[in-house]
Design a protein around this nucleic acid. Structure first.
Lengths: 340, 340
DNA sequence: AAGAAAAGTGGGAGCGTTCCCAAATAGTCC
DNA sequence: GGACTATTTGGGAACGCTCCCACTTTTCTT
């Protein structure tokens, strides 16, 4: 540890230079209430001249706050990071935290010794709150964090958990809108390429599909149902299955854009024209949706906004203490492009 | 701030309970040297019973170390996050830091007021070191961080900068291996689909392509050169260009797997069989490489390892002080699959 | 067995803040 | 103008830890 370390100025030095007491200098720095204009100006000048920056460790020691929020991502979700959606959420969180002058500690929870690490980390009171992304249904993390007295906000609906603040997009309504749109386009045989049923997004979007059909007085046809794992290949495969089982399919709702891209490929391969013969709608409004052929109609959601909302909810929770905050469902909307 | 806060035990309490002095207790916790077995066991028992965890703020205040490392990612690189490669690097960094009992603070440097934010953050001495990912050639961040007396490690070669520790994969050799392999396969007209020339990976992989040709005594043919932006579409487009300009092309080296996947598509579209008519080799060994048709031969690199190495280099730099550390180039190797 | 070296121990000092309270100053009212 | 009240102000007392030094105990030496 041979750091240059030009020994940063302390509050004491600032006070001396400004010709005031330590207490007054401290007051100027934190809100500056109850300080005469003269004193304030002197202190501010001294701060400027000395290039003073408060020592956060000392501050934390006495205030018991760290001005730091942890973002916990279950690493088992390998793919999570590579996905534009999560990347967007992280970006939104980062921006919002930065605006609130909070710093973000990223915890990639190793599935193995996760509990240990996380626990000791949280006990060490390194953070003032925890944002949880990509939670499994059976995970008890939220409970154990809250047991430590730390505010938690979940990204995504809490599967069955009670009383946790969370933010999610309106998957169900979005999917329903997509199906209604297909109905309005006059499509008679509307298929669903669903996501994994053990993921909230997979379940809720499928539920929205069913709701959309119901709203139009249709009954689901099992030949028109297939599912994938959100990958392009799986979408392509699912589309082929559906085409084989029910060649008269003329509309497809895919639970995400990547699978929709796969579906487009399978349709082209089968000689169908999109949207002339078959209409396709995706979900996510990923960048990809603009570069498919034809451009993909899709359900728009804003990952950045989701991140921002998570932080906002966190701030509110931290400010209000243990008052339970209601979850927030962000709106989704249909974006009609060339594929429908 | 109405946290339950069951007032965590302090070192003093641990010491009292163990019937020893504060100093002895502290010694047990930090390395435990120069302590009698009896005392050590008593302290350890007390720690266990009380569930003691050291207060890191207090520790930081006196040691001047935070046991925290910042990972700075230039946010302007929007796509960075969505890429599996970077996701892997981040994962490797996270794992290695966690192993070293360091925490990671993620800084998404907003292109706009980046300098301000970062500076004030670093001055506040929140971190012991900085890992820098996705650096632009003209960025002065490394210099300004080092001016603060903080160790820096760059992910990726430092474009022209002197004396910075960095870790990168051997892009050039990897590309050269790929080309040599195509030569060995008896390919006569080996094309290159390069990446953007303003990115290090783009430049160096192209250089490797040229080196590979040179090693085989070939001279580059301008009709066989095209470039893209690392996206699948751009790869498809580039391949079409090349096919149009030089139909006798029988080998293609692509600067990444995504573009290679695009190239495969264009080749199929043109009626070429892979690998019978044309051999294709990519770069990255991304998950995608396994699911193309045929599976893609590619240059393997390990993003996790790159992350780990960055941390290792950082640890060494922190330990040794200002001694400049040499950069590390990680090996790449060819993985031959069905496309060549 | 006496003396010396080594090993182990306790606790004061100090890290840089914020909090709080008593003291000092300024302002107000009749 | 005196008695009071409101506003500012300075600095002591933590916060919980590590560092260090003086002191005690043990272990070698010869």
């Amino acid at each position: 540890m041979s750091r240059p370390s030009p020994t940063r100025p302390t509050l004491e030095q600032v006070a001396r230079r400004a010709g005031v007491g330590r207490g007054t200098a401290s007051r100027v720095i934190n809100g500056g209430d109850r300080v005469s204009t003269r004193a304030r100006e002197a202190v501010e000048a001294a701060i400027e001249e000395l290039g003073y920056v408060p020592n956060s460790a000392a501050r934390t020691l006495v205030t018991r706050r760290t001005d730091t929020v942890a973002l916990v991502i279950a690493e088992s979700e390998e793919r999570i990071f590579g996905e534009p959606f999560f990347a967007g959420v992280v970006r939104g969180i980062g921006a919002a935290l930065s605006d609130a002058n909070l710093q973000m500690v990223l915890l990639l929870a190793q599935s193995g010794h996760r509990t240990n690490r996380l626990d000791s980390f949280l006990i060490a009171q390194h953070v003032d709150g925890v944002l949880l992304l990509s939670l499994h249904d059976d995970d008890t993390l939220p409970e154990s964090i809250r047991a430590r007295g730390l505010p938690v906000v979940l990204g995504g609906e809490p599967g069955g958990r009670e009383g946790f603040g969370f933010v999610d997009v309106d998957n169900e309504l979005g999917a329903e809108l997509a199906v209604r749109h297909l109905v309005e386009r006059g499509r008679r045989h509307i298929a669903s390429i669903a996501g994994p049923s053990d993921m909230v997004a997979g379940r809720t979007r499928y539920a929205g599909y069913l709701a959309g059909l119901a709203a139009a007085g249709r009954t689901p046809d099992s030949r028109l149902q297939a599912s994938g794992d959100f990958s392009q290949d799986s979408g392509e495969r699912a589309m082929r299955e559906i085409l084989a089982r029910c060649p008269e399919v003329d509309g497809v709702f895919c639970a995400n854009d990547l699978m929709a891209a796969g579906a487009l490929r399978a349709l082209r391969e089968s000689g169908r024209a999109v949207p002339a013969d078959v209409s396709v709608v995706g979900f996510d409004d990923a960048p990809l949706a603009l570069s498919t052929e034809p451009p993909l109609s899709t359900v728009h959601q804003s990952p950045e906004e989701m991140g921002r909302e998570m932080v906002d909810l966190m701030l509110r929770t931290m400010a209000l203490g243990d008052v339970p905050q209601p979850g927030r469902i962000l709106p989704t909307r249909l974006v009609v492009r060339g594929s429908s």
